[in-house]
Computed example of a mutant assay.
Amino acid sequence: MSSSTERRTDGRGRTTGSVLSGLAVAVGCALFLGGFVWGALIYRPYTVPTDSMAPTIAAGARVLAERVDGSEIRRGDVVVFKDSVWGDLPMVKRVVGVGGDKVSCCTKEGRLTVNGVPVEEPYLQSDGPASPTGFKAKVPTGQLFLLGDHRSDSLDSRVHLTDGDHGSVPRSAVSARVDARAWPVGSVGMMDRPEAFSELPGGTSQPGPLRPITYAVIAGTVLILGGAAHGPLTRRKGRNRG
């Protein structure tokens, strides 16, 4: 005999189990499609062609970047930007200074300083000094000072120090903030916010909604597969009993 749950039917002869499985599929589809649409509206994929951000982002890696306004950017953020002085293609670098900051390198211990405060940078390519060449700059209001994590192989604000804006780019040049690595598989994961920058005025930014979007897609997938499997499992169970 079938269970009491399976024997109960609605006015159209459907069992409670089939109704619940249909509801699970419907909710799953809503979560799955909603998550993808939500993600497509907020995030954009980018490919980083060089190793200037290694080891944080390897050459050829794909990243997911949240569309943000330049005013939302904080120190420590890895951003996607485009500036005519730097070139015609989008670039990915880390923000180490904002308007009004005095950025310099290096201390006797080889550290970068922001407004005289040494900054720990565990994401750098090597354990050597924060930059193979010394530099000093004051970031103009409304601008951002950008460096690659692979300091010995990155063309960044240090190269443009003699420009009118002391190597910085306007906040308006930023189109997105990198939240996660999406490829290759071994590097997939969320981007950490550097703790050292959180201690400076203004703190660090908060991650975008990528986690809840991912959870929605996963939950939707589970509900769809679970609901779709109910019918075949029930029929197989009935045949076994027969």
Rank of each mutant, 00 (worst) to 15 (best):
L89E: 03
V37T: 03
R235N: 06
R235P: 01
P212I: 03
V19I: 08
P140M: 10
I213S: 05
S157R: 01
T113K: 13
S157Q: 05
E121K: 04
V19K: 13
T56M: 06
Y123G: 08
I57P: 05
S152Q: 06
P49E: 04
R8M: 11
T5N: 02
P55G: 14
D10Y: 08
S52P: 02
S152N: 04
P132W: 10
P118Q: 08
D153K: 02
V79Q: 06
E72R: 15
G99R: 12
G134M: 01
P184R: 12
T234I: 08
L112P: 09
L210S: 03
S205W: 06
V217D: 00
R14K: 09
G231W: 06
G60A: 13
G186T: 09
A58R: 09
R67L: 09
R44V: 07
S21E: 06
P207H: 06
E199S: 13
T9N: 11
L41P: 00
I42F: 04
W183F: 15
V37I: 14
K108V: 04
V95K: 07
A137L: 12
D149Y: 02
G226D: 08
R67A: 13
P45I: 05
M190I: 04
R62C: 08
S131Q: 05
R193I: 15
Q125C: 10
A137N: 01
P129N: 10
S21M: 13
G35L: 05
S198D: 08
G167E: 03
G110I: 01
M1K: 01
V117Q: 12
S205N: 10
D163A: 09
G142H: 13
Q206D: 10
I73P: 07
E121R: 02
T221C: 15
G35V: 07
K102W: 10
G100S: 15
I218F: 13
S18E: 14
L146R: 01
G70N: 07
P132C: 06
G97Q: 04
F197Y: 15
G99I: 15
D127L: 06
D51K: 11
F81R: 06
A30D: 08
V96A: 11
S131T: 12
M190E: 08
R7E: 14
Q206Y: 15
S198V: 00
S21H: 13
E66Q: 10
H230A: 14
A137R: 01
R177F: 03
T56K: 05
V78S: 12
K108P: 12
L64F: 15
W183D: 02
G208Y: 10
A219G: 09
R151S: 09
P55D: 03
L147G: 02
T15I: 09
G116W: 01
A130V: 00
G70Q: 08
V114L: 11
G227V: 07
G22M: 15
H160R: 07
T15A: 12
V114C: 08
G11P: 01
S126N: 04
R177K: 06
V63C: 07
E109T: 14
G167L: 14
S175I: 09
G17Q: 09
K108S: 12
R94H: 04
V178C: 03
